[in-house]
Design a protein around this nucleic acid. Structure first.
Lengths: 243, 243
DNA sequence: CGCGCTCTTGACTAGGGTCAAGTGCAGTGG
DNA sequence: CCACTGCACTTGACCCTAGTCAAGAGCGCG
């Protein structure tokens, strides 16, 4: 598996053509890289005037602290993803971002953001696209948890990660490296690790996919998509050229 | 119940002070009002180069068409809310927006958006806040469906609508006018209308809230929040002054 | 008057949660 | 080298929340 030198650039370029101005503006937005170890909090819920980052290497999670003490997983974040850029405009961070693996991130210099975007409209368009795509993913997960059963939900999420890792080049063709434990994956899918384990066994026994030793391997994407009602058009949003 | 003349302005001003430039820019963004009747599609899923609107009067829904033919409700939209502004940057609308009641909307003129925001930074800040707040609500609903039981979920959603209607002045102090049918509300909460009906009965018999004749009336917000594990700090995000 | 829609309630069922026990392995210290 | 601990994973048995099926009431409307 080859690792792209710059996942963010790769992701943006997969969809929009960036000019020299845009690329320079994007690079000027990023500060010096910082490293967090697995388990570290990168930004914590309630933090005021928190920074925002873009992930260079490694995976992160966002979790939400509830009053009952539980910490459900909201999302997973891959290289090339932004962390907490929305909540920059709230009074404080609305969730905690933590390193899932060792993670390298670059802080975003957002003081002159509006000016930067005005002067680099190609970059602006690409970033607005990223924002819209993120919302589409959250909405898709909402639908997934509300309407689909545990098996379809699991398959759907793993197929989404399949597309996301492809987009940044972290993909082998057969599958991808996935540092999520079953416990965390179950949490992100709104079910118990015990039940996820049963679902994964069924998928494995049906020769649809393997989730093992930190690798997800698809044995039959077609049948998987069909059996779990996976909506192809939803993935197209990620790759299709806009009008 | 009094209806504010301009719900959007009221919502933005509740949080940010807008200068004359910002207000002029906001008004210049809006085109001439259009009316849709209850049940009409305002923007449909898959529509390319779709418009975006701000709601002046009435309630709207966004629903997602799935391959199995079902149409789960993603969100409800109140006066002062934007419709489909995120998906402007995708190749097509990712969901259908439909009028729940008779709805009056103003189209947004987004051609010169970046320039407008650059020249009216106060407005930019307010709109970024709106976007962040919307994401926070979707995330909250995700958590709700994933982690909370039917009763807590219902109470949580109605308390959220309570806060939203207050913000735009569509509120009586005791409760608010709610044109949602039990069928639609159940759909938005990821449960069956039958079960929602049972939940509402329990809440009514416990003297916590009434949902009747298109009105939601809170009998005991304190006890409701406590019994259902409602997170107060989540609501603060909507009203607290930022740093 | 009858159709259709929302709401209501009851009886039954099943998907997935809870509880419990056990395996395998990596790290740590004796 | 071998306990010992902790964590991730696995599986079985049982149970409960919420879905499904069914029937009926109330009401607006052509």
């Amino acid at each position: 598996m080859s690792v792209a030198p710059n996942p963010l650039m790769r992701k943006l370029q997969a969809y929009h053509t960036l000019g020299a101005t845009d690329i320079a503006a994007l690079e000027a937005l990023q500060g010096e890289a910082v490293t967090f170890l697995a388990g570290d909090d990168i930004i914590f819920q309630g933090q005021k005037r928190h920074p925002s980052f873009v992930i260079l290497r490694g995976w992160a999670l966002s979790v939400k602290h509830l009053t009952d003490g539980s910490r459900p997983v909201i999302d997973v974040h891959l290289p090339g993803d932004f962390l907490a850029w929305r909540s920059l405009w709230l009074s404080s961070a609305d969730r905690t971002f933590q390193a899932l693996t060792k993670v390298e991130v670059a802080p975003l210099k957002t003081e002159r953001l509006l000016e930067t975007l005005y002067k680099a409209p190609g970059l602006a368009r690409a970033l607005l696209w990223v924002g819209a795509r993120e919302e589409a993913m959250v909405v898709e997960r909402l639908v997934s948890i509300a309407k689909r059963d545990a098996t379809a939900r699991t398959a759907h999420f793993l197929l989404e990660l399949d597309a996301r890792t492809k987009l940044i080049g972290h993909h082998s063709g057969e599958g991808f490296v996935c540092p999520l434990s079953q416990t965390i994956l179950a949490d992100a899918l709104g079910m118990t690790p015990i039940h996820l384990n049963r679902v994964l066994r069924q998928l494995r026994e049906a020769n649809l996919l393997l989730f093992r030793d930190g690798h997800v391997t698809f044995l039959d994407r077609e049948r998987l998509a069909e059996r779990t009602g996976f909506d192809r058009s939803y993935l197209d949003e990620f790759t299709k050229e806009p009008t």
